[in-house]
Amino acid sequence: MTRVRESRDLRSKVEIALPKGEPAIWEMIQKLDKEGSWSTADIARFVGSSPKVILHYVARLDAAGFVERVGRSQERGTPHLYQIARPSIFAPRVSSSGEVLPELIIETLWRTMRMLKTFQAEDLAAYLAETGRAPNIKSIRVYLWRLHGGGILALAGPRSQRQEQRFRLVRIPGPRAPKILTANVLWDPNRGEQLGTAQAEEVGL
């Protein structure tokens, strides 16, 4: 008698440190601003970014008019108190000279998907080209299939040999685009567990 061995899907929870940058700083600024004025030291208490990174970002926000100085702080090394002067859902992208930069390609793609509802990779690439940016059609295809795997997109009809697969937006988690993250995990096969904490990084389009 032949015994059929059942294969098990072995899974384990992995601890990943999510990337912290300007979006995390801006999110904390928005939270602090609801309570009143704030300083860069207040942000540093809650965000894992270095004080220098926070200071430089707030200085650029100040130069672009997104925040304004409203007083002086009593804390050493953080002389100014700020408040938001120009609200923004997304973290403003500002150059070192205070110039406002265009939104990230992934945000443009997500906004376009929400407008079109049904689309294919070529549609999104054409819209990006109209905005003056060079689209990477392969990266767009990968992103669409990742969104499909996450239940955000569904297939809109069968795929033909001569045409791109069309997708349909079926779930909108929020205004900000879902991101693809990658992380190098150190794994111990002897004990079947993770060693340390993996630092996640965003995969750009």
Rank of each mutant, 00 (worst) to 15 (best):
V185C: 04
G151S: 08
R60N: 13
E75L: 14
I54G: 02
F119L: 09
W145P: 00
L181A: 04
L147S: 08
L61W: 02
L205Q: 03
E15A: 13
E35W: 05
G77K: 04
L181R: 09
D42Q: 00
L81V: 03
I106L: 06
Q161F: 09
G98D: 07
I16E: 00
L81Y: 01
E68T: 12
L155Q: 10
S7W: 03
D9I: 11
P135S: 08
A44V: 05
S88L: 03
Q163V: 06
P87A: 11
K138A: 14
L124D: 08
L205K: 00
E103M: 12
A59R: 15
S73P: 07
I140P: 06
I29P: 09
A64W: 03
E22V: 09
R86A: 05
R133K: 12
G98E: 09
G36A: 02
M28R: 15
D62H: 13
T2M: 05
G132E: 01
R146S: 10
A134N: 11
S39L: 06
K117L: 11
K13F: 11
L155Y: 12
I54Q: 03
R141P: 02
Y82A: 08
L205W: 11
Q30K: 15
A44F: 01
L155D: 02
S50E: 12
L18H: 06
Q30I: 13
T78K: 07
Q194C: 02
Q120M: 10
A63W: 00
Q161A: 15
R114G: 14
S49Y: 00
A183L: 01
R5T: 13
N190E: 14
R141D: 10
P79N: 02
L186W: 01
S50G: 05
R168P: 00
G48L: 09
R162E: 14
L10N: 08
I89D: 13
M1W: 04
W38D: 05
E201H: 12
P19S: 08
A125H: 07
I29L: 15
W38P: 01
T112M: 04
D123N: 14
R159F: 04
G48H: 04
L128E: 03
L32S: 08
R166F: 03
L169E: 07
D42Y: 01
L153Y: 04
S160H: 10
R162A: 14
P92N: 01
R191T: 09
A59Q: 14
T197Q: 13
K52F: 06
S139C: 03
G196Q: 01
Q120I: 05
T2K: 10
L155H: 06
T182D: 03
D9N: 12
Q30S: 11
I140C: 02
I25W: 07
K138T: 12
Q74L: 14
A126Q: 12
S95C: 07
Q161S: 14
E130D: 13
F119W: 04
K117M: 09
Q30L: 14
A41R: 12
G65I: 08
A63G: 02
K34T: 07
R141H: 09
E202A: 09
A134C: 01
W145M: 11
T40I: 08
I172G: 02
D62F: 06
D9G: 05
S50K: 14
H80W: 15
Y127I: 12
P175V: 13
P135F: 07
L116P: 00
